[in-house]
């Protein structure tokens, strides 16, 4: 753990980031149980779902939940500022290593590489290696974006072997017992070219996420944005209506995240219609007709 002098941010070594305070997560189905079961059974998890529906939040929540001391009472919240990273009694260390995948993410970015150093070269573990060694939940976000070779890398990690061969150092790392690989994937409805290979896909159990039903979503929006229950309800209604347009030229429906953003703007005193316009309408589409249609829905729902 590295503690900095500057109070504005906190810096952790990647494998030491523990989700300490309970992230807000409202579970809709049995996903918590499924994930917990998979975790105990060492089955990698694939989270499917549209953007902003809570996949990442779910993983954070699970990392927190799985690491939470089973016997200890709710923590008394450390005085603000320094995160308390020292272990508490009964707590299991379940660090969360999140890697956002992108097109140029190579295998060595994940595994590690040699770096030059005064005395010559020094091996630096990549985030995946660290996660494997430390028994973290490794969360590869938007895994389809990564290069094909990286997806192959995870194969030995995700079957019964649970090993990470590090070619360059000529070693094999057996994963810590607590290690779990979790990837997320947004099937999209039109992804022509990006798709997970079946050999990869079939190493995971898949939990499908979708936007929560209206009542739950309203609850989430209210909780996360701090707007009034009435506004939250309207926002959830709006989200539902906009998602109806998904088959009419809208690539993706309004995510819960966007609804929350709109809710936050509203709770800051921005007029509701305007908040929805900037947070939702303009974000979702550039097509004038579609924008206008969504705005009409907004102006019907909000006064």
């Amino acid at each position: 753990m590295v503690e900095t002098d500057v109070p504005e941010f906190k810096e952790y070594a990647i494998e030491e980031f523990l989700v300490r305070s309970e992230p807000y997560y409202r579970s809709v189905g049995d996903e918590e149980n499924l994930f917990t079961a998979a975790y105990h059974q060492h089955i990698p998890v694939l989270l499917k779902g549209p953007t902003g529906c809570g996949k990442t939040r779910f993983v954070e929540y699970m990392a927190w939940k799985l690491g939470r001391p089973l016997t200890v009472i709710r923590d008394e919240q450390s005085p603000q500022g320094a995160p308390r990273q020292e272990m508490r009694e009964g707590e299991v260390r379940v660090p969360l290593v999140t890697i956002a995948c992108h097109e140029d993410l190579t295998a060595s970015d994940l595994v590690g590489r040699y770096l030059l150093d005064a005395e010559g070269t020094r091996w630096i573990d990549g985030p995946m290696t660290r996660a494997v060694k430390n028994g973290a939940i490794l969360y590869l976000d938007e895994v389809v974006e990564a290069r094909k070779d990286t997806t192959v890398l995870i194969h030995p990690l995700t079957d019964h072997r649970r090993i990470l061969p590090v070619e360059k150092t000529g070693s094999i790392i057996e994963a810590d017992d607590r290690f779990l690989l979790c990837i997320s994937y947004n099937p999209g409805y039109q992804s022509a070219l990006k798709d997970l290979k079946h050999s990869t896909r079939q190493r995971f159990i898949s939990i499908e996420f979708n936007y929560p039903p209206r009542e739950i979503e309203a609850e989430i929006v209210e909780r996360e944005s701090g707007c009034t229950a009435e506004d939250a309800d309207s926002l959830a209604k709006l989200g539902e209506k906009i998602r109806n347009l998904q088959e009419h030229g809208l690539q993706e429906g309004a995510s819960t995240r966007l609804l929350i953003y709109a809710g936050r703007l509203i709770s800051e005193g921005i007029p509701a219609r305007r908040a929805c316009q900037v947070a939702i309408v303009w974000t979702l589409t550039d097509e004038p007709e579609l924008q206008r249609s969504i705005e009409e829905v907004v102006s019907s729902i909000f006064e």
Binding site: I242, N244, H248, E289, R292, I294, E296, V297, S300
Partner: peptide
């Protein structure tokens, strides 16, 4: 067009 989308949304 706008009304169509509006109705579909609703």
């Amino acid at each position: 067009g706008i009304i169509k989308l509006y109705c579909s949304a609703l």
